[in-house]
């Protein structure tokens, strides 16, 4: 008999990613609906200490799989451990963030468990006993509802799609014996630019396009930094070589859903909308009053971004004291 909701936490270098809190908050809501328990599973090396940070988000239990072998994320090792835990606990619903890690793990779990998977979904609902998930397709132009048939149901949520809420839960800590099994992956090294914010998780994204005119993004970097946000770029800015392809927002780049998206000098090709149309508030700054971006924005400013953006930055700085 399947029971309970399992939320899989994600941490990098001992810091929980925002998707963890999102998965726990939604996991709590689902567990309440089902009248069952919420368990958080934390994997890593020396993660027992940070695991209690999850308590305010409502887990009944926090299970810690702690092992030096889990210091770096390796898909097969992580999946083996999670699989063992699922095998033992038989949860009804498994929830995690559709981050780079989460996408790998959820696809692998779906195959191993022969389980239905809603990848990169943005919302779920129950209709009688059916669990239905909604996800974007075709560059965000279509929303599709899918039903998950069978258990365990795996929900991989798009980052920033869920509200984070605090909830009461016992948060009892438990340990889980780790057996990573064999792994055919060997970690070599990691190039980390730790100052850089993950764009899909940022609350604010400030993006520049062709209107930047060159690789100098300092005006939008300053605004992004002040708002504790990330810097994005349109495809043309990436194609010009002004920004790395990992900064690209759009259909063939990242899909972002921040609270606030500021598009600077971006005309708004459909390819770009596909990457930012689920943002909560969109501000567009463009010289061209006919730019298509204005049709998709909430607020538009017709003007020179090199004049407007520094003034906005200065005013916000004053406001923040």
């Amino acid at each position: 008999m399947s029971k309970g909701v399992l939320a899989i936490a994600e941490q990098v270098e001992g810091v929980f990613r925002k998707v963890t809190y999102e998965a726990l908050s939604e996991g709590r809501r689902i567990a309440d609906h089902l009248g069952s328990e919420l368990t958080a599973l934390v994997l890593g090396a020396d993660v027992e200490n940070i695991s209690k940070e999850l308590k305010p988000y409502g887990p009944d239990r926090i299970v810690v799989a702690d092992s030096p072998a889990l210091v770096e994320f390796l898909t097969d090792a992580y999946t083996n451990v999670i699989y063992d835990f699922i095998h033992q606990e038989t949860p009804e619903v498994i929830i995690l963030g559709a981050s780079t890690q989460g996408k790998d793990v959820s696809a692998r779990l779906s195959a191993r468990l022969n389980a239905p998977l809603a990848m990169d979904c943005v919302a779920i609902r129950f209709e009688d006993n059916r669990l239905i998930a909604s996800r974007y397709m075709y560059g965000g132009k279509i929303l599709a509802d899918v039903e998950l048939d069978g258990t365990p149901k795996i929900l991989a949520f798009r980052p920033n799609a869920l509200d984070i809420t605090n909830a009461d839960g016992a948060g009892t800590l438990q340990n889980f014996d780790v057996d990573t099994g064999t792994t055919a992956l060997q970690f070599i090294d990691k190039r980390l630019d730790t100052d850089k914010k993950e764009i899909t998780e940022a609350d604010t994204v400030v993006s520049g396009g062709r209107g930047m005119g060159g690789p100098d993004f300092s005006v939008i970097e300053a605004l992004a930094e002040l708002l504790d946000g990330a810097v994005g770029a349109s495809r043309s800015a990436v194609d010009e070589g002004w920004r790395p392809s990992s900064d690209q927002v759009g259909q063939t780049g990242k899909v972002v859903s921040p609270n606030l998206y500021i598009a600077c000098g971006i005309s708004g090709a459909i390819q770009h909308f596909a990457g930012m149309s689920s943002s909560k508030v969109v501000v567009a700054i463009n010289k061209d009053p006919e730019a298509p971006i204005f049709a998709k924005a909430d607020y538009g400013i017709e003007g020179d971004l090199f004049e407007i953006v520094p003034l906005v930055t200065e005013e916000i700085r004053k406001l923040k004291g």
Binding site: E72, L74, S99, T100, Q186, I188, K190, R191, K196, I199
Partner: peptide, 13 residues
């Protein structure tokens, strides 16, 4: 592999 924050990690497979 591209990982979060536009970073890269290297593996042998």
């Amino acid at each position: 592999r591209e990982i979060a924050g536009g970073n890269q990690e290297m593996h042998e497979i």
